[in-house]
Amino acid sequence: MSEPILSARDIVAGYVRGLPIVHGVSVDVAPGEIVTIVGPNGAGKSTLLKAIAGLVVFESGTVTFAGRDVSGHPAHEMVKSGVGFVPQTGNIFTNLSIQENLIVGAHTVSRADLRLRLQRAYEHFPVLAERRASAGRVLSGGQRQMLAVARALMTDPKAIMLDEPTAGLSPKVVADVFADLRRLTELNVAVLMVEQNAKAAIRISNRAYVLTEGRNYIAGTPDELLNDPAIAEAFLGGRRAAKASGAA
């Protein structure tokens, strides 16, 4: 792994001060790398992303981005620093048109750059260009996810965090979303995501972290994690192992 651009160290965070959900988690992401965080429900995966994004109570730890300390910065400052975030639910404005969603996504972008960014977004996601005047609420699940990613990319982030980007999507659309994320890494964007769809996500990742009960459990490359039967059994659905033992 090259020098990380986004680095979180010993993060303690939660929704209520004094009642943390994340107890000292550390993660790193380097430019052009996809890093996935997996783990059982309640492991604090989403809370960790929200803590970095400046959306929950940040109790202690440090977040550095491109060499700058951005620990506990509010959401609108994180965006300005260059960290984009796509939440799991409510990640588009349903009452705004697609174009308006993208313009609000580019709130920190200068007027001169806005036109170019819109043009680029429509080139990347032609489906959005066709429906630019439609309200967000009429989009399908996959299109919403596409718009949410396109919206987060409007600021030209150097790192993007996604909270379960494939939740509730059909397998075909899941593959499209993952392909879009891979394309981002070609632009040297650092991608940090949380996924329930753990195996598929780890396969397209450079590295993955497993969290349990708000703590780092193990980290490794896709090969290391997918080929470890204990990890597969405990955290990755373990279907293959279960099937094998069932057949025997």
């Binding site: 994004a53 400046g54 959401a75 009452n95």
Partner: peptide, 14 residues
């Protein structure tokens, strides 16, 4: 208008 719908998401947008 974005903030009226979701202050959190508006914040994430900067």
């Amino acid at each position: 208008r974005a903030m009226a719908e979701s202050p959190t998401l508006a914040g994430i947008c900067g």
